[in-house]
Design a protein around this nucleic acid. Structure first.
Lengths: 203, 203
DNA sequence: GGGGCAAGCTGACAATTGTCATGTCAAAGT
DNA sequence: ACTTTGACATGACAATTGTCAGCTTGCCCC
């Protein structure tokens, strides 16, 4: 019996440990490494060459999506699976774009995890069913980089003047971008626009 | 050797399963029940009378804090421990007020969990060290109920007029509450005020 | 060289937001 | 009875925000 080697990346240590314990119950899975952030995970994958990388998205230093892209760029043999809280179609889209093989939600039943790992190891894909459909129906990200940037800052409570200073644009321009974003997202103000964009996974 | 019986409440099924697996590795812990929300957890504690309830805070139907209060109100023998992502001093304060015996963060190392459970079972307390100090130094919630309510809605992107309609106040009054909240929290605008309040655990 | 085009800026205007001072009213203290 | 207090309201004002049209610049492409 060949073991499937797995590296797990997850910034919440308790969850990381718990996931490892969960996988250890399976006879055919071997947790060979653990990382608390994206950079560690990248290093581990480069040195250990595991069959599977199981990674969260929102982590310090490097997100799971950036990590997936980095691994794809150097064509490592490791297959990447995302395990996240967020059912944001923008995340899934980006993940698929980065060649990810699995995208599971943390509120899937625990048994599905091992099954999904085996599926992916065997060459298949494992996408959370509630997202699989929505994925292509969901809209494309309409924001450009400036709009995204400005919206992120606005969402943190910074004023237009503040934002302008911080990214070296005039205040009017900042207001223009914000206005554009608001209208593209069909929102009523910056706060709503921010929430819509964030919840869609576009930030 | 007496087993310590534990019920776990956590809305993310995968994490729930993983935590159960983690505890199963410990010889002296017995996971006798699992709940996906606060109400289920309450029912389980009433029927199973476990030694320990391990619960998340943010869950559907009933939060972990409400759950703790409900258990305290009927003086069940079960000792409650919170395990959460959020290092919000307001949460900890409320938890302690509800007689909770443990408050751990999900980014604590996995080994601490079992140790903390034993400590609590033996009659002690287990508070995440990064919070233990801050707990009393942290400020008291300065907001009154109206301010909280208005701030929550503002944080969702609703306009003052919108909020006024929704809670049947005049727009001026809404602005007044918002203004009060902003100044109490020493923020520059509603968005910042919202974030500060939320991050302190006051919403 | 000229046309199209995207990134930025500006100025003007209306709407919304934040601040204040002041007023009413009912409940709670004294 | 007489404050005090808290909840809610008003109106006025300044600052910020959202919308729009038009201007400049540099870049690419033919």
């Amino acid at each position: 019996m060949t073991m499937i080697s797995v590296v797990i990346a997850e910034d919440q240590a308790l969850v990381l440990g718990a996931l490892a314990a969960l996988l250890k119950l399976e006879g055919d899975l071997d947790v060979v490494g653990r990382a608390a952030n994206g950079q560690q995970a990248l290093a581990l994958c480069e040195s250990l060459r595991p069959d599977i990388l199981l990674t969260d998205i929102e982590m310090p230093l490097m997100t799971g999506l950036e990590l997936a892209a980095a691994l794809a760029a150097q064509s490592l043999p490791t297959r990447v699976m995302i395990v996240t809280t967020f059912a944001r179609s923008g995340y899934l889209r980006r993940a698929l774009g980065a060649g990810v093989r699995g995208y599971l939600l943390k509120d899937a039943p625990a048994e599905t995890l091992a099954a999904a790992i085996r599926t992916v190891h065997a060459g298949g894909r494992a996408i959370a069913p509630e997202l699989a459909l929505e994925s292509w129906s969901g809209k494309e990200d309409p924001l450009n980089e400036r709009e995204r940037q400005v919206l992120r800052l606005a969402g943190e409570g910074r004023s237009s003047a503040d934002i302008a200073r911080q990214i070296h644009l005039s205040e009017g321009t900042v207001r223009n971008y914000l206005s554009e974003a608001i209208s593209k997202l069909d929102a009523g103000n910056r706060v709503e626009a921010f929430r819509l964009a964030r919840d869609a996974g576009w930030l």
